[in-house]
Design a protein around this nucleic acid. Sequence first.
DNA 1: ATCTAACCGAGACGGTACGTCGCGTCTTCTA
DNA 2: TAGAAGACGCGACGTACCGTCTCGGTTAGAT
Lengths: 214, 214, 214, 214
Amino acid sequence: MAQKTAPDSTRRSERSRRAIYDAALALVGEVGYAKLTIEAIAARAGVGKQTIYRWWSSKGAVLLDAFLDLGEQAARAASENAGRGEIQTEITNSGDLEADLKFVMRATVDEFNDAKYDAPYRALAAEGLLNPELGEEFVEKLLEPQLQLFVKRVRQAQDAGHVLPDVDPRIALELWASPLAQRWLMRSGPLTHAYADKLVEYALYGITPRPAAS
Amino acid sequence: MAQKTAPDSTRRSERSRRAIYDAALALVGEVGYAKLTIEAIAARAGVGKQTIYRWWSSKGAVLLDAFLDLGEQAARAASENAGRGEIQTEITNSGDLEADLKFVMRATVDEFNDAKYDAPYRALAAEGLLNPELGEEFVEKLLEPQLQLFVKRVRQAQDAGHVLPDVDPRIALELWASPLAQRWLMRSGPLTHAYADKLVEYALYGITPRPAAS
Amino acid sequence: MAQKTAPDSTRRSERSRRAIYDAALALVGEVGYAKLTIEAIAARAGVGKQTIYRWWSSKGAVLLDAFLDLGEQAARAASENAGRGEIQTEITNSGDLEADLKFVMRATVDEFNDAKYDAPYRALAAEGLLNPELGEEFVEKLLEPQLQLFVKRVRQAQDAGHVLPDVDPRIALELWASPLAQRWLMRSGPLTHAYADKLVEYALYGITPRPAAS
Amino acid sequence: MAQKTAPDSTRRSERSRRAIYDAALALVGEVGYAKLTIEAIAARAGVGKQTIYRWWSSKGAVLLDAFLDLGEQAARAASENAGRGEIQTEITNSGDLEADLKFVMRATVDEFNDAKYDAPYRALAAEGLLNPELGEEFVEKLLEPQLQLFVKRVRQAQDAGHVLPDVDPRIALELWASPLAQRWLMRSGPLTHAYADKLVEYALYGITPRPAAS
DNA sequence: ATCTAACCGAGACGGTACGTCGCGTCTTCTA
DNA sequence: TAGAAGACGCGACGTACCGTCTCGGTTAGAT
């Protein structure tokens, strides 16, 4: 963690940090992650290169912090509006698991289709595939928190007897969450509400015939 | 389509092509995709850089062809051995869908854990996330063919009445295939046979309680 | 001299040779000697590269032959016109050495100012400075023949008693020929008829005061 | 004028500049100007290529500066030794023009035959023939200053009545200076003291018979 | 009149160097 | 004294040509 004589973070320039985040997010959208360079971020942010190297170890690390900051800002804005933002701490529990999951999944589809998030999120995912350290941070700080919302909701359903008790919620949620993510990342198929619905249905009820209800 | 007077492929050096494939695969394993350079591939292959640039547009394209060639060679070797190789044209249909899927899924787990395939496959996936052209080729030539094996097997099961007739097989297979791939790529959890089994079971029978069999 | 199994010159394609000369001369004028390439000459001449490498060892050698050929053609054209061309076998001997030298020097000034000859001649001179082999050929085939015309004329003047008998004509001619060439090549001063005249006068009569004629 | 944001010369590395000069001069002697490469200079100097490209536009420009620096160093060394170095600010005026010119001409012959100066000077001359910008700089900074020494001495002789008053010194000096340079550059004849002497004699007194002194 | 050796156009090949871009480090100057 | 500015050594980029090497096709001169 510690660099060579770690910099004094109390003296850190807040103004520079923000400018770097803004520049990184803007540039990754404009030129793509592959052509994103520290030099360009520094130039755009009106910042010396050293100021970036002092606080981050790679362009991926900068972008990850920038994206996390973006999320926090969005969350703060959402909670200020007292409304229901994209980033929530809970999945609604209406008692109808299928409906609740479909709602969240449809919202996720919409989010994935939002250009603002596409470039940086995709870049971080790609970097994470190749770079285990960043990958771990990506999973821990971005991916897993989102998935844990599903874990929580599935546990509630189990308590209510709507999901089999011996089902592992952490694995179960992957049945619908992973296909959606994969389709988006790999562009291996269209991302629609109908698709999201089907994933939920198949996962909840299986694809094999059920005995007729008595 | 044609670049600046496309090269004459009939005069292409087979020897160079093989050497480039070998070098690319070896190097991506040794130094990783991020540090893989065209220059190093050329040097290792004993080839001029231009010979690479003449036939491929990027290191990703080289690696994709190298990996595809690796697959073809493995397939050829497998068919010569008349045995059961990793790359097959069909998923066995024993009549027991669950067993057949588990068998393939466990084999896939083993393959994902094989270091030989890990580095290049992961690299291609990552590159595909950022580079739509290469991503499309990756999906079309590597991913989709594998998934279509599942589509075929699910269709057979539908014909046999073991899978609900209104289920879309292309979507259904994602319930087990995507989570496995995502866990591997994102390193978001352990890849075990038990995990593979659970994915198949959840997907086939759902996670909600079924009425007691009549 | 002999290459590796020297090519059979009787089978040589005259058409290709001409095309190569034309291309070389045209290109040296268009892009300059530094950017003149064998590949470009071959392409412009519609000729395979090997056809050039078969008969010449460098771009300088090609250009030298091309320029010599240009001279021969000009000479042939001049003699056909039965008139007085730039390339002559003799300097006129009118009995007046000063007048005859000035005439030739003025013609040389005009030739040096002719764009057609400038680029290739300058290129050959420059190449000759660095490449002793080509330099020797340049001197022997281009420079010395021109200078020998002066030697001949000065000898005639010596025989007539117009030049001191112990003067070395080969050295004497350099007094006017070298300054002219140097000014042109180095662009170290303007090239005019007046300048040429002065060189001849200074060389013939010296720059120091002469005793009054008796 | 300014290139793309001209570099800040106050922060220039003196150490690198010297190393580049040394490397350039050494290499031009070892491999010749044609095979002199920026890459080799950088490698030999232990310097990045960019550091060369930042301050010079071509290998010729580097070599010119290196050679000028060499001259300055020699001049500085000479003046420290309080002795008579090769590079002087004046041609001695002993009252005997012929003797003084011969002295300088013989020294020049020796210098031309000094291997240390041969390669770079010849290279710069050749480059100057092809490249007008560099040629101009070559003439202005190297050639002309040397020739002006002759101009000065001839003027003194004119004042003393030893040279005709209507003679143009700038032209007169070429009668002996240019032939020497040309013989050296073109290797069109041997460079000896005797040859130098004859040039001076011919130029001073002409090659035509003088009336007998009264 | 046919054969056959070569020259020919074409251009792929292993290389070298080009001039540029960006890396991560280091230094200098400024607020 | 942190930060902007940017020069530095370095490494790779993608391109241009080098000179060598096949590869058909044409085109003699000898059979």
